[in-house]
């Protein structure tokens, strides 16, 4: 299976978009080589501004540019874009409902060796709690490109959560990406996995293994954390009666919480949340860390077995 990092797909798509639309402006905060805005900067130097190591000012400048009619894509690592600049995102971008797309790379623990200080496991939770803000977590390079085109057309602020390592490509180029609509990748009635980002490919592998055991799962790529796809969530609860959420993020406040909110209010069934269990990350290779924090195919398989026991109780 071919692989591509979502940040690489972002960098490429940004250049494509820049060629199509003159009103796009890109900002970065001294990380353009890592966030991949560098290619846009080379191609369109007049529409790229480096804010330097000053993420809060970058978000403020983004607000001003958007208020003056530009469509702004602003990038840094997730920890700094959502973390350091949280209040600027909240008050300058979201409260004012401005057309700024925050494209945050290096999210989650797969940042790897830089360690816990740089591994954002809270960004979905804090971004999701902000009114007006759309939150998207794509699972592969193809859907990242599609998401970027949709976000350009979308009016208003958004947070796009991207990652550092290469991920398997799940989709074909003509895939249909709609903000607010999860993508059902597999149909089965025993339980449902709702996943986002790096966990989608792992969920598909786990479903394959379980199918061989005679357990049929539905698997949904819930790239759109906000607005969450309520219809698909509730109908899966009805069809399967047991759900597992999987995300490379804290189990507090992220996709798992969003799904629980919808399920508990509409059609309560057991939901098991897989993610980082309320701890900080640490240094290690991305693969070692995914193992260490239990974000693996094996762990999904185990958890589905546990979940099915709960279901029959």
């Amino acid at each position: 299976m071919d692989k591509q990092a979502t940040r690489d797909a972002y960098g490429k798509a940004l250049v494509e978009l820049g060629s199509l639309y003159d009103d796009i402006v890109v900002l970065d905060a001294d990380l353009s080589k890592s966030t991949k805005t560098f290619d846009f900067a080379k191609k369109f130097p007049d529409r790229f501004f480096n804010a330097g190591i000053a993420e809060q000012n970058m978000m403020g400048m983004a607000a001003g540019l958007a208020a003056a009619g530009k469509v702004v894509f602003a990038s840094s690592f997730a920890i700094f874009a959502a973390g350091r600049a949280f209040e600027q995102v909240r008050n300058s971008l979201a409260y004012a409902n401005l057309n700024v797309k925050i494209c945050a790379t290096h999210s989650g623990i797969t940042v790897g060796e830089d360690g816990g200080s740089h591994q954002s496991v809270e960004d979905i939770a804090i971004m999701r709690s902000i009114p007006n803000l759309t939150v998207i977590v794509p699972s592969d390079g193809v859907s990242t490109r599609q998401a970027l085109f949709k976000l350009y057309q979308h009016q208003g602020p958004a947070y796009l959560r991207l990652g550092r390592p290469a991920l398997p490509l799940i989709y074909k180029d003509d895939m249909d990406f709609q903000i607010g609509h999860g993508i059902q990748l597999r149909q089965g009635h025993d339980a449902a996995i709702i996943a986002c980002g790096a966990m989608v490919a792992l969920a598909l592998q786990a479903a394959e293994i379980l199918a061989a055991e005679g357990i049929q799962l539905s698997v949904v790529d819930m790239h759109s954390i906000k607005p969450l796809d309520k219809d698909i969530t509730v109908s899966l609860a009805m069809q399967t009666g047991a759900m597992l959420t999987a995300e490379e993020h804290s189990i507090i406040g992220g996709l798992g919480s969003a799904v629980c909110e919808v399920v508990s209010e509409n059609y309560p069934v057991p939901v098991m949340r897989m993610g980082i269990n309320d701890v900080f990350g640490q240094s290690g290779t991305p693969d070692e860390l995914m193992q260490h924090y239990g974000l693996t195919v094996d762990k999904i398989v185990q958890n589905i077995h546990l979940l099915l026991k709960k279901k029959t109780k």
Partner: peptide, 13 residues
Amino acid sequence: LRTLGSPLQGHPD
């Protein structure tokens, strides 16, 4: 340095 479980994290702890 920078290995899983090491006190010597990528950034000082």
